[in-house]
Design a protein around this nucleic acid. Sequence first.
DNA 1: CGTTAGCCCTGCTGGC
DNA 2: TGCCAGCAGGGCTAAC
Length: 253
Amino acid sequence: MKVEVQDSLVTAPESPDSFIKGLQGQTIASVKRRGKYLLLELDSQDTLVIHLRMTGRLTQTRLPLAGDDMKHLRFIIGFSENRGLAFHDTRRFGKAFILSREVSGEYWKKLGPEPLGNSFNARHLKVVVGNRKGPIKSLLLNQSQIAGIGNIYADESLFQAGIHPLRPAGDLADEEINQLSRAIKETLKRAIKLEGSSIDSYRDSLGERGRFQETFRVHRRQGEPCPSCKSTIKKIRVGGRGTYFCPKCQRKP
DNA sequence: CGTTAGCCCTGCTGGC
DNA sequence: TGCCAGCAGGGCTAAC
């Protein structure tokens, strides 16, 4: 495949040159995911790793791109004369890099378990909350403890579990931990079934919007009635992130 | 070690 | 087709 990098920030701190060199002439052998990272495994045994962050978009596209399709383009991979994969990213937070086979095993140890995997359950969550004093929501967003839960899914999971986002993690009762681990799995499964959340920029690889945002119960719904008890949904800030909850269904810390 | 504030970016929205 | 402070699907770093 043939690669062009339009914005060196996407490969930083590595140079576009080394990025291109790692991809030049390679074939994608398989596609995987770990947490919020996309893993495109190459014939060389190295992996092209992509993180979309807030506004990144990865799209199958016809080549060459022109006009509006060039706006916010950060890099492009050509598979043939007229087919390729384009990475667009308005806010330029997205990252792409080549991870060598030798260090990949070590690299992924920095992430906690997959919430939909067998190793994540109430028992693991109980270990993770330990005696932590920080808010449970911040813990859910901590990728080194659980990999892949984002702001939307933290809010929606805590609502389903009936837990206030500011509750000190270590204060949760066993039954609450059970509820929360189940709520996380169910929330993620529902979101995947609806192909993700397109609040603004998210699109799948064919440019299609997800529909999970249509089913948000609290996220971005401040001032609206709680779908369960009709209380007014509140918005607060937790760990610098906008946080939405029902003050009646999710009791105070 | 755990926790938090500030920062990285660009574009949109809501209040004025 | 005003202006602009504040906010946004995330995560790193420094500082306590």
